[in-house]
């Protein structure tokens, strides 16, 4: 299971915790699993945050693969100049 870390601001919507063990081999699968556990969470995350999978930041991911032991951080999206 991937270790998923949510933004602090969403902790209350995820049982009060930012860290979760989540099954799934893609960002989409993780979102689906999170949403099943915490209804509405996928909507709060989808298309609005970047995702760092094992240290690599993806700004608008959906199908990006996730390994069994990946660390996945949902982080704010940052623009550039």
């Amino acid at each position: 299971m991937a270790r998923v870390v949510l933004p602090q601001v969403l902790a209350e919507r995820a049982g009060g915790a930012t860290e979760h063990e989540v099954p799934g081999r893609s960002v989409r699968a993780l979102l689906a699993a999170l949403d099943e556990r915490f209804p509405g969470l996928a909507e709060a995350l989808s298309g609005k945050v970047a995702v760092a999978i094992d240290g690599e930041i993806h700004s608008d991911p959906l199908l990006e693969p996730v390994e069994e032991d990946s660390e996945v951080y949902f982080i704010p999206r940052v623009g550039g100049g």
Partner: peptide, 8 residues
Amino acid sequence: ASFGPRYK
């Protein structure tokens, strides 16, 4: 990193 993930 202070913003979340581990650096590559």
